[in-house]
Design a protein around this nucleic acid. Sequence first.
DNA 1: CGCAAATGAGAGCAGTGCTCTTATAAAAGA
DNA 2: TCTTTTATAAGAGCACTGCTCTCATTTGCG
Lengths: 234, 234
Amino acid sequence: MEPSGVVASARERVRDAVRGEIIVAARAQLATEGAGALSLRAVARELGMASSAVYRYFKSRDDLLTALIVEAYDSLGAEAEAAATLGQGSLEHWRNACRAVRRWALSRPTEYTLIYGSPVPGYQAPELTVAPASRVLFALAALLAEANDAGELVEDPSTVLPTSLDTEMRALADFAIPGVAPSIVAKALVAWNQLFGQISFEVFGQLHGLVQDTDAFFEFAIDAMGRFVGFRPA
Amino acid sequence: MEPSGVVASARERVRDAVRGEIIVAARAQLATEGAGALSLRAVARELGMASSAVYRYFKSRDDLLTALIVEAYDSLGAEAEAAATLGQGSLEHWRNACRAVRRWALSRPTEYTLIYGSPVPGYQAPELTVAPASRVLFALAALLAEANDAGELVEDPSTVLPTSLDTEMRALADFAIPGVAPSIVAKALVAWNQLFGQISFEVFGQLHGLVQDTDAFFEFAIDAMGRFVGFRPA
DNA sequence: CGCAAATGAGAGCAGTGCTCTTATAAAAGA
DNA sequence: TCTTTTATAAGAGCACTGCTCTCATTTGCG
């Protein structure tokens, strides 16, 4: 009999509870041990169950990893979405969104590593991770669209795109942020890469010895990149 | 007896040869299997020797990993250094250096992942990796210094730094690129993060479905960021 | 030539992901 | 209520991993 979906049977509820416990334990182990060192057996030990029992809930280690990845993407996406409407003016919205992403990354570094670091060896992200993975980008796109509607996005006429890129950016704009100029879309993508590049470098320790006041440097970067994209300062 | 260093004894030469063979086999396995899946036993099998014998040459798996990392850093550094003097004008030098980094990354993705992706679980980079890791950054710094000396670097007076960042960037400039304005140093670091952020996103597949013509997009980015830093177009 | 050092091979330990069979508990049907 | 079906748990086992030990062999140097 197919479960009705909304109303969960007693068995289903306890099953979901166990699933949740496994995920919690796995996340704890992830935080302490690191991404690829996530061991199903260790999680099982932690929970006092046989390793084989865990396979009733996750058919493979990658399956468990996927659950963690989806959770991380969703958590980060929610933070970014919430922050993208804070403050006054588009530039401040942009900055707050960036700050939210960084704050999340620094508070949950192993999970940031999981989703924005190198792919875990042998792991292939399944289809269902695509949607949650896009949330941050969509939040930034919405930000862009609002700024454009409010007239707070100025286009630099000296920015020229080659035709191939122009048509691509135009298509991208039509899909997600109608009305925004192709050159601004391209710049926004550049800024997006900058944002995650900088956060990754900070999380992965690549800034060590170069920059001490990472807070100030980050503020400088998001301000500069915000203006680069075309946000008009309030 | 300490080996004289320059002249290698017969034993030392064959030892170095075996070491080299192991590294080659390891790199091959790295390329096919991925970063964290590098197995000492597998490379031993490949070379037809017992796994325990490999431990005569590398005292741990991390030790072998370090050798690969150093080799990768040096290879990338050499490419960047060579490219940073190609072409006419600072902006073109900058662009060629960026192109070289990207070309290297795309041609050796697993090794790029090894050095710029998430740290391998449980692996702690030893001190001796610091120097080769800095080569790319130093190449870019030299580029900046030359551009500044040639008067091809213009400072945007509207760029203001907070005092803490100003002193830091000034100290950084004094150390590596004397004469370059603090605001330009900060912008160069932003551009550096952008460069590796974009390349990482491309290598890790995060650009999939967003940008098709990654070549054109990269050209746009390095041109835009080059101007952002202050390189005067030739 | 002989000796000491370097090397190779093998066994073994503790760990991993994963699969299989067997036992048990719980829900569903008669 | 009793039986049957189904989900879960447990354990053994396979093939693999990094790494350490011992023991035999080779090899180069004095």
